[in-house]
């Protein structure tokens, strides 16, 4: 299957980029007063996921989760409000950027590396029990593949042929540690063989490539043939979190990444070469998207923070 390029995928990537750029604006003034991990540079993966996901599917994401949430259809406003620590946020300001939970779209995340995968396995088991063809997507980075939970999850999913897709975003670094320095296997996708899983490694900077491979992985899992392990290579443009000095990557490497591996720049070239749109059309789309995000940010910034009196609410159901 070779799909794309499409304006829709470009539009999705733009939205993900603009969303994270809006988040960056909350850092200097401490509107977001803790860690912030953006997905800038990794948007092609989010855009590639979006078209294969159905409302009933579940996505369990990581600390770097905004673009996965958008791919799953989480509403922009409550998500941005949650990240900006507002009462109007998805979780009433209790979760924050690393812990968004959206029952309406079956989207959740965890701030603990690798801990997403067992949770996704639970969704997969639930779908098996219900006899639906929904699938669960567990997202992890290259850091999470070396946790015990990665092995436990894929082993159980393989043993019981559960509808699970493990999506590994390999951005080459677990904070400062290069994956090749800590992986026994040359690729992460080849580990699929140990679990009887479908496995593939793809270029995660091209949304068409991701979309095609992700569609195949999801189809495999939906069809009852057991888990799939998709490794998508990509580049993290910024530090691990905002404030990370990122001295572990040489300046030249970071410059090269931004110059040569920006999924938006690459996709612009692809769209124009294929005659889908000209630069002026793409520029106009980008300008519209940026303006819309700026308007949303202004709105969210005006929302109130949660009231201190409610700080203990929601621990137990009696308090909800």
């Amino acid at each position: 299957m070779n799909t794309g390029p499409t304006l829709e995928r470009f539009r999705r990537m733009l939205e993900m980029r603009h969303f994270d750029e809006a988040c960056l604006e909350g850092v200097p003034g401490f509107e977001i007063h803790g860690e912030l991990h953006t997905g800038i540079g990794q948007e092609a993966i989010g855009a590639g996921m979006a078209e294969s996901l159905r409302p009933g599917d579940a996505v369990v994401s990581t600390h770097r989760n905004h673009y996965h949430a958008l791919a799953k259809g989480v509403a922009l406003r409550p998500l941005l409000a949650e990240i900006f620590e507002k009462e109007t946020g998805l979780c009433r300001g209790r979760g924050g950027h690393m812990h968004p939970f959206d029952p309406a779209t079956n989207f959740s995340a965890t701030g603990i590396v690798g801990a997403s995968l067992p949770v996704a396995l639970g969704y997969a088991y639930a779908y098996r029990l219900r006899g639906t063809d929904d699938v669960a997507i567990g997202v992890t980075g290259d850091g999470g593949v070396n946790t015990g939970g990665f092995h436990e999850t894929l082993n159980m999913a393989g043993a019981w042929k559960l509808p699970l897709v493990v999506l590994v975003e390999n951005n080459l670094y677990g904070i400062s540690v290069p994956i090749e320095a800590v992986s026994a296997t040359a690729t992460l996708a080849e580990r699929a063989a140990a679990y009887g899983a479908w496995g593939r490694k793809v270029d995660g900077t091209d949304p068409d490539t991701v979309a095609d491979a992700f569609a195949e992985a999801v189809t495999h899992a939906r069809s009852g043939r057991g888990p799939a392990l998709l490794e998508a290579t990509c580049f993290r443009f910024r530090g691990h979190f905002e404030g990370d000095h990122d001295n572990y990557r040489p300046r030249e490497e970071k410059q090269r990444i931004r110059r040569d591996h920006d999924p938006l720049t690459l996709y612009r070239a692809k769209l124009t070469a294929a005659g889908v749109a000209d630069q002026a059309t793409l520029d106009a789309l980008a300008a519209q998207g940026k303006a819309a995000m700026a308007a949303l940010l202004a709105e969210v910034r005006a929302d109130a923070q949660p009231e201190a009196a409610g700080a203990l609410r929601y621990r137990f159901v009696e308090e909800a």
Partner: peptide
């Protein structure tokens, strides 16, 4: 962890 996903489902 499965229990977490099962509960959310």
């Amino acid at each position: 962890g499965m229990a977490v996903g099962l509960a959310m489902a």
